[in-house]
Amino acid sequence: MNTSQMLFWFLTALSILSALMMVTSRNPVHSVLWLILVFFSISGHYILMNAQFLAVVNMIVYAGAIMVLFLFVIMLMNTKADAEPRHANRMRLAGTLAGGSLLLVLVAALRETELRGISLEGPEGDIGLVARLGSILFTEYVVPFELSSVLFLSAMVGAVIIGRKN
């Protein structure tokens, strides 16, 4: 087991553990923090796979911006203690069951894929680097890139509509 393998298993364990903690935490703030940990571990995976640009963006956008926004909202609402009533256990059980069976089915279905033997050890390209990815983004993918601005415009208008006082 070399370093990258050790790192892989560590990050994997960390991400799954944090994800479970995020889901089960009763306090929303804790959930946010656990989620940030998941994002960090995923960024670690990105780095392992030489996707440096995405690793950085993931940290800045998700862990940085988005999760802060979440925290901000939670603070705003001042709901530290979870307001969820206790008697939601049935739903929890059902939810866990559904998620578990989904995992079970997916894993069972995908156990024998054509990708089984393929390993990610191999010659590393440079597509994960900022320069390379950037040039692709602004040449081949410029149309979707521009169009995604519409999304932000919508989001902006949405914030205006929803946030504006009548």
Partner: peptide
């Protein structure tokens, strides 16, 4: 898939919108 399923389970099990 594991993370995805945990997410799904969370969506189903939790009631806090956030």
């Amino acid at each position: 898939l594991a993370l995805f399923s945990i997410g799904v389970a969370g969506v189903l099990a939790r009631r806090n919108a956030l």
